[in-house]
C-alpha cells in the first residue's frame, strides 16, 4: 500500500504544471524515503529530477510498504489536479502492484471529498546516474528575476551565454536582429534574503544554453522565491527550485558546445 497525504494540493499542481509541457509521461518512484521523479525531454537535452521527502512537514501522512513505480501521463494528471481546490489536502493512493492511482481531494472544512482514479502506464524510461559534483559556480537569485531574464532575452535569440565571475553574473544573447545583455551584481544591501543575488565562485564559468529550455524551466517559478543555478564549464547547468517543506525540483540542461 502506498498513501501520501499532502497538505497543499497547490504544490503538486505547480510541480505538474511546470513539468507537463517538456515531459509528457513520467514515472513516480515511491519508497519509504519519499517520492522521486526523473525524466528526459523527448530530444534528450534536458532532464528533470523531483524529490519529495517523506519525513518533511509537507506530508501529513506518508506510507509506502514496498517500492513502487507509478507511470503517469502528466497532461492527464494536470487535468485531475485542476479538479482540486488550492487549499485542498490531496491524498495519493495505490496498491502494491498498482494499475490505478487514486487522488482524493479533501476541502479545508471537510465538507467536500472528491476521488479520482487514473490508469497507470508502463513507461520504459532510461534512468541516468546524476553525478554528485562540486560546481565551479553557484548563483542564487530571486526566481522571478531569472524568469524575467530568460523571457527578455528569448525575444532576441535562441541561446544565452551565462558568464559567472567574481563581481556577479552576466546573461547575454546575440541574435540576427540584435543583441542584449543583463548584468546582475551580487547584492549586499537587500533586506530580504529571497531578494538577494549571491554568487559562490570557485572558478569563473562562461557557457551557452538554449533559452527555449530555460524558459520552460521557469514555469516552476511559483514553487519557490529563489532559484539556484549551478554551473561548471562544459557540463549541464542545474536549475534548482527548492520546495518548502517537501524537497526540490531540479532541471539539468546540456550546454551548447562549440564545434
Amino acid at each position: 500500500m502506498f498513501e501520501a497525504k499532502m497538505l497543499q494540493s497547490s504544490v503538486l499542481k505547480k510541480i505538474i504544471e511546470s513539468l507537463k509541457d517538456l515531459f509528457a509521461d513520467a514515472n513516480f518512484d515511491c519508497s519509504s524515503s519519499g517520492i522521486t521523479l526523473q525524466d528526459m525531454d523527448s530530444s534528450h537535452v534536458a532532464l528533470c529530477y523531483l524529490k519529495l521527502r517523506s519525513d518533511e512537514e509537507g506530508f501529513e501522512d506518508y506510507r509506502c510498504d514496498r517500492n513502487i513505480t507509478l507511470g503517469v501521463n502528466l497532461g492527464l494528471m494536470s487535468k485531475i489536479l485542476k479538479c482540486a481546490g488550492n487549499d485542498d489536502v490531496v491524498t495519493l493512493r495505490a496498491e502494491d502492484e498498482p494499475n490505478i492511482l487514486t487522488f482524493i481531494f479533501d476541502s479545508k472544512n471537510s465538507e467536500r471529498v472528491s476521488k479520482y482514479d487514473i490508469k497507470l502506464m508502463e513507461i520504459d524510461s532510461e534512468l541516468l546516474g546524476i553525478p554528485d559534483t562540486d560546481y565551479s559556480c553557484v548563483v542564487k537569485m530571486p526566481s522571478h528575476e531569472f524568469q524575467r531574464i530568460c523571457s527578455n532575452l528569448s525575444q532576441l535569440g535562441d541561446s544565452v551565454t551565462i558568464d559567472c565571475h567574481k563581481e556577479g553574473v552576466d546573461f547575454k544573447v546575440a541574435g540576427e536582429q540584435g543583441s542584449g545583455a543583463i548584468k546582475l551584481k551580487q547584492t549586499t544591501s537587500v533586506d530580504k534574503e529571497e531578494d538577494q543575488v549571491t554568487v559562490q565562485l570557485n572558478e569563473p564559468v562562461t557557457q551557452s544554453f538554449a533559452l527555449k529550455f530555460l524558459c520552460a524551466f521557469t514555469k516552476a517559478t511559483s514553487l519557490s522565491d529563489t532559484v539556484n543555478l549551478s554551473l561548471t564549464q562544459d557540463t549541464p547547468v542545474v536549475v534548482e527550485y527548492p520546495i518548502a517543506q517537501h524537497g526540490y525540483l531540479r532541471f539539468y540542461l546540456a550546454p551548447k558546445i562549440e564545434e
Binding site: V45, L128, T235, I257, E258
Partner: peptide, 14 residues
Amino acid sequence: TNKQGSIKEFFKKR
C-alpha cells in the same frame, strides 16, 4: 557555431 549537447553525453545510463 554551437552544437546542442545531449544530456546523455554527460550522465551515463544507470
